[in-house]
Amino acid sequence: MTPFTTHTGIVAALPRVNVDTDQIIPKQFLKRVERTGFGPALFHDWRYRADGSPDPAFELNQPRAAGASVLIAGPNFGCGSSREHAPWALGEYGFRAILSESFADIFYANCCQNGLLPVRLTPAEMTELFQRHAAAPGPYHLTVDLERCEVRDDAGFRASFNMDAYRRASLLEGLDEIGLTLQLEPEIAAYERRRAALAARYAS
């Protein structure tokens, strides 16, 4: 997994509530059997008009969102389907971090598995970020710092966030979670022996 330490980038704003993973990556693109190729389909039905041209009204198509790598989003972002294709698409498009007051649980976990940092801020902090983004004359930049668990801009905004220590360490170091779990093989094997003994007892 790509490690995440600190990232500074252009901000795109999607101030909609309950953005579901069907919008992030519609089902017709879930037939791919690879982990790649989803970026061009990100937000497909919102992003493109019927003739395939970009819809200028969509938030990510606005000139100031060009090259964005930090997404500020409304609450309950990533609800619905468990499809990991959603963080794959967001990552391939260029996003490294998503900031919201809340995320759906499965989506949050899926982001962490892919080096895409989900950051929970307070509603007041999100409101402040949306306002700063809207008021900026050109592209608005944010720094997302996982080492210090802090989000900041260069005009005085500073907010800290929480992330559980295990996930944070995995992201900072870009660890292979399966590899880590396999190091616990003796514990898994011991659990399986207890499980098998119980099953044998019930069956007799």
Binding site: E84, Q113, T181
Partner: peptide, 10 residues
């Protein structure tokens, strides 16, 4: 509970 593909692999 539902899991993503990375967890399916796990």
């Amino acid at each position: 509970f539902g899991i993503g593909t990375s967890d399916v692999e796990h």
